[in-house]
Measured scan of single mutants.
Amino acid sequence: MAAGGDHGSPDSYRSPLASRYASPEMCFVFSDRYKFRTWRQLWLWLAEAEQTLGLPITDEQIQEMKSNLENIDFKMAAEEEKRLRHDVMAHVHTFGHCCPKAAGIIHLGATSCYVGDNTDLIILRNALDLLLPKLARVISRLADFAKERASLPTLGFTHFQPAQLTTVGKRCCLWIQDLCMDLQNLKRVRDDLRFRGVKGTTGTQASFLQLFEGDDHKVEQLDKMVTEKAGFKRAFIITGQTYTRKVDIEVLSVLASLGASVHKICTDIRLLANLKEMEEPFEKQQIGSSAMPYKRNPMRSERCCSLARHLMTLVMDPLQTASVQWFERTLDDSANRRICLAEAFLTADTILNTLQNISEGLVVYPKVIERRIRQELPFMATENIIMAMVKAGGSRQDCHEKIRVLSQQAASVVKQEGGDNDLIERIQVDAYFSPIHSQLDHLLDPSSFTGRASQQVQRFLEEEVYPLLKPYESVMKVKAELCL
Rank of each mutant, 00 (worst) to 15 (best):
F433M: 09
I62W: 04
V457R: 02
N336C: 09
A3L: 13
Q63I: 11
P471L: 14
E464I: 15
L311H: 02
K199S: 14
Q51P: 00
K402R: 14
R270D: 00
D6F: 04
G393Q: 07
H437E: 06
S289T: 00
R404V: 11
L355G: 00
P318L: 05
G231D: 13
T450I: 14
K170C: 08
H97Y: 12
T167E: 01
H437G: 10
L179Y: 04
Q177V: 14
F145G: 03
V364S: 12
F28T: 10
I238L: 08
I265S: 10
F212S: 04
L209Q: 11
Q428T: 11
H400V: 10
L155Q: 04
Q221E: 11
Q63L: 08
E425I: 06
T382Q: 06
M299Q: 05
A344R: 04
L209R: 11
L222V: 09
V138W: 14
L255P: 02
S23R: 13
A110T: 11
Y34D: 01
F460V: 10
Q205G: 05
M89Y: 04
F212V: 11
L186R: 03
L311K: 01
K218Y: 15
V324G: 07
Y466A: 10
A2K: 11
S290T: 07
G8H: 15
E283W: 01
E283H: 10
L155A: 04
Q63P: 03
V405I: 15
A342L: 03
A480C: 15
S9T: 09
S438K: 10
M181D: 14
R245A: 02
R303V: 03
R396D: 04
Y294A: 05
W326E: 02
L124S: 10
F282L: 05
G200T: 00
G5R: 13
H86F: 02
L307R: 00
A322S: 08
V88G: 06
F145Q: 04
Y13V: 15
C399S: 13
E277L: 01
F236G: 02
I105N: 15
T382F: 02
L252P: 05
M389T: 04
T242M: 06
P378F: 06
D420E: 11
W39H: 14
I123G: 08
T204Q: 13
N336M: 11
A344S: 04
K367M: 04
H442W: 04
G96P: 08
S290H: 00
N353W: 07
A18D: 01
Q439W: 07
E481Y: 15
T227L: 09
W39T: 05
L406A: 07
R137D: 13
R85T: 08
D87Y: 08
M89A: 13
H217T: 12
T354F: 08
G418W: 06
G104S: 10
L377I: 15
S207W: 03
R396L: 07
D317K: 01
R396N: 04
A150W: 08
Q164N: 10
F345Y: 08
C27V: 14
F232I: 11
L17M: 14
P471V: 13
E302L: 00
S257P: 05
E48T: 07
D333K: 00
C113P: 12
L53P: 00
K402E: 06
L346H: 15
Y472S: 15
Y472N: 15
L469Q: 06
Y294E: 03
V247M: 14
D191P: 05
A411C: 15
L258A: 13
T267A: 08
H86I: 03
S395E: 08
R40V: 06
C113T: 01
K479W: 15
S207G: 13
R270K: 00
Q184W: 12
R374I: 00
Q241W: 00
D215C: 12
G214Y: 04
D182R: 04
E277A: 01
Q184F: 13
L252M: 09
C399E: 05
E250Y: 08
H7L: 11
H97W: 13
L341I: 09
E279L: 06
D268A: 05
Q320R: 03
K218T: 12
G197Y: 01
Y243P: 15
A431K: 13
Q221M: 15
D430E: 15
T158E: 01
D178T: 09
T330G: 06
G451C: 05
V413Q: 14
G4A: 13
V254F: 06
G5W: 08
P133C: 15
D248K: 08
N71T: 05
E50Y: 05
G214P: 12
L275Y: 02
V92Y: 03
Y114R: 04
G394E: 11
S19Y: 02
V478D: 12
Y243G: 12
G259K: 00
R396E: 05
G4C: 15
D144E: 11
R296G: 05
E463W: 14
K199V: 10
